[in-house]
Design a protein around this nucleic acid. Structure first.
Length: 477
RNA sequence: GGCGACGUAGCCAAGUGGUAAGGCAGUGGUCUGCAAAACCAUUAUUCACCGGUUCAAAUCCGGUCGUCGCCUCCA
């Protein structure tokens, strides 16, 4: 059992996690917009959400997690228009890509991935209620949230609305707000949208929802008025999260989430990775270069989730090498025959478990946790090399690694099952090697390779693995 | 201009008051029929800079510099 603490943006401190329900944890993560292919920034967010979910699960909590997909907004509408496709077909393609990327990254499925377009009814209800309560107003067929009515605005991000430069990034001429700081809840349908059938009928005319109300509506719909954790990346803090909070709290009078977690940005060449900066590296780019989702996952995992992460292929290479060291270790552990017991193993196993989960529980300090794993590997390696682990100790080692891996999700602990004839061949090759019949040994090795088994020799005997195409290694669970 | 984050070795990265984890690369060694590796050892008198508090500071306080992000629909 793990004591979980994490940094709550709302209080700007690390706090101990106390779920609302004893055995259940609920969290909502802001997901991608379905108008572009998954890139490294999306991948990091997926992995961070997965880390959170797995940590909560390890803590014995049943996790209910939702990550929304924005499939109804300016970008998706403009994208579909440009592609000459119906909105649904356009976004559907990207939704599938995101799901595939998540799988590739070894991300456990969230409870749900709701689409904004399927919850417009909820959004309209919320807007109506906010109008009734006086937090919103109608103007020329659009509905805006009146920020002046929500006194606690800005608590999360610390912005002072009087000092903000309005209109710097948005053309205010497109809106008819009472105050430029107000934000759109429901936007009057344009003529073009009307023609394409992208509109929803309401008492106030045809509309479509704005971005902020989508998240409030979906999170409340699935998780209730107050849930445990809201997760997203830092650059969404203002205005998106402030607006989400304003909508939800004006509506219910209760906090939307008890803990607000924000992950760091993903940078490329010192700048945020985004289409605007023209420095996007997609998941597909990385796979095409022969890297695996598993290698990406590891690269994302070892950097603290709140820190900015500079993406580079050099870094990815370094992650690959590091992973190879772990793989070598687990291969030996699985393949080499058990022998005599070693006196230090019990303590080493206990230390790994303690240190790994203490680091994890301290605001997801994965660098510290992985450091503990390497300390362990370094100590066990010589023992393994000397062939002095007995069967029971090997099981203990495997068991602690399974625990660690329930969060990491990258260690290969499934012994590659050997068909009897493969086992036979390996033995045959060993006999040939003992007789120094190198020609026979090499031909058996070649035969094994044809059957998809790569054999390496070590001082303690042969170690094998399923030979896999580089870059296409599957993730262990 | 306002708000926020970050700055630790060649690179990546932990460490938030007790004397610098871990990984990659490098170097040296061990093992090895071949192959591919692997394994071990080693690498920061110092934590962007300046000042202060303290017996003790990468860690706390004040200031400076640098990089990045957000400021009302890129997400």
């Amino acid at each position: 059992m793990l004591r979980l603490r994490f940094y709550n943006t709302m209080s700007r401190k690390k706090e101990e996690f106390r779920p609302i329900h004893k055995r259940r944890a609920t969290f909502y993560a802001c997901g991608p917009t379905a108008y572009e292919s998954p890139n490294m920034a999306h991948c990091r967010r997926f992995v961070v959400a997965d880390l959170l979910a797995r940590s909560l699960e390890y803590n014995g909590l049943a996790v209910e997690s939702y990550m929304n997909i924005t499939d109804l907004d300016d970008n998706t509408i403009a994208g579909a228009d440009k592609a000459g496709l119906p909105l649904r077909d356009f976004t559907g393609k990207y939704v599938n890509e995101f799901m595939a990327a998540a799988r590739e990254l070894g991300v456990k499925k969230a409870t749900g991935y709701p689409l904004a377009s399927e919850h417009v009814g909820d959004m309209i209800d919320i807007a109506r209620e906010l109008l009734d309560k006086g937090y919103a107003y109608v103007k020329h067929g659009s509905i805006y949230f009146d920020i002046s009515k929500f006194k606690r605005y800005g608590r999360l991000s610390g912005v002072d609305l009087s000092k903000i430069r309005t209109g710097k990034t948005v053309d205010l001429d497109d809106y008819e707000k009472d105050n430029p700081r107000d934000f759109t809840l429901l936007k009057r349908t344009t003529l073009d949208e009307l023609k394409k059938g992208i509109f929803y009928e309401t008492d106030w005319g045809n509309i479509r929802p704005g971005w902020h109300i989508e998240c409030s509506a979906m999170s409340i719909h699935y998780l209730g008025e107050t849930f445990d954790i809201h997760l997203a990346s830092q650059n969404l803090m203002f205005p998106h999260h402030e607006n989400e909070i304003a909508i939800a709290e004006a509506l219910t009078g209760k906090p939307l989430a008890n803990y607000w977690l924000h992950s760091g940005l993903l940078l490329r060449d010192g700048r945020k990775m985004s289409a605007d900066n023209g420095n996007v590296v997609t998941m597909q780019d990385v796979l095409d270069r022969g890297y695996s989702g598993r290698e990406l996952r590891f690269m994302f995992l070892v950097v603290h989730y709140r820190k900015p992460l500079h993406f580079s292929f050099k870094r990815l290479n370094s992650a690959r090498r590091t992973l190879m060291r772990i793989d070598e270790f687990s291969r030996k552990l699985l393949c080499l025959p058990p022998d005599l017991p070693h006196p230090d193993v019990a303590l080493l196993v206990a230390t790994l478990e303690k240190k790994f989960f203490a680091a994890l529980g301290d605001d997801f300090n994965m660098s510290g946790a992985v450091g503990a794993l390497f300390d362990f590997i370094k100590k066990i390696n010589p023992i393994l090399q000397a062939g002095s682990l007995d069967r029971r100790q090997k099981n203990d080692v495997l068991e602690v690694l399974r625990k660690v891996n329930s969060v990491l999700g990258i260690i290969r602990l499934e012994r590659c099952p050997l068909a009897p004839e493969i086992d036979q061949l390996i033995r045959q090759r060993e006999r040939a090697r003992q007789l120094k019949d190198w020609t026979a040994a090499d031909s058996v090795r070649a035969e094994l390779l044809k059957k998809g088994i790569a054999v390496c020799d070590t001082a303690c005997g042969p170690v094998w693995e399923r030979s896999i195409e580089p870059g296409r290694q599957g993730n262990e669970r």
